[in-house]
Amino acid sequence: MDTDRFEPLILGFACNWCTYAGADLAGTSRIQYPPNIKVIRVMCSGRVDPTFILKAFALGADGVFIGGCHPGDCHYIEGNYKARRRVELTKRLLSAFGIEPERLRLEWVSASEGARFAQVVTDFTNTIKELGPLNKV
């Protein structure tokens, strides 16, 4: 498979207070990143039910990205820690299904980190391109 031609489909979740605002800041700063990611806004990264992640992979998503507030900065005190635990457990589950856990990534991006949002999304997109398309069951 020519990895240059493979354009992965990436689902993103961004918490309203930090990462979604950071993604907006990347926009107002006109920082360019690959268009593969499509972001769903949730109030908190702690809202992301592992079911959502599994559903996305089941339907053929090549990667799932979750962005939350930095540790200690969560608007809802500790939702990001819950997200971290759930992501770790979901990664184990993915391995059991034969899906590379690297296809799921949790990152902390604050409201002032527009450049960081663009950078982590670019990096994740490249990782997924290297992994290639998800092998559908």
Binding site: G27, R30, Q32, Y33, P35, V39, R41
Partner: peptide
Amino acid sequence: NIRDQCSWVHMNLPEEATEK
């Protein structure tokens, strides 16, 4: 959101931005 998270961050890729 098709500006801050689409048109402004894919300014060099009009076709991809439209599809997104």
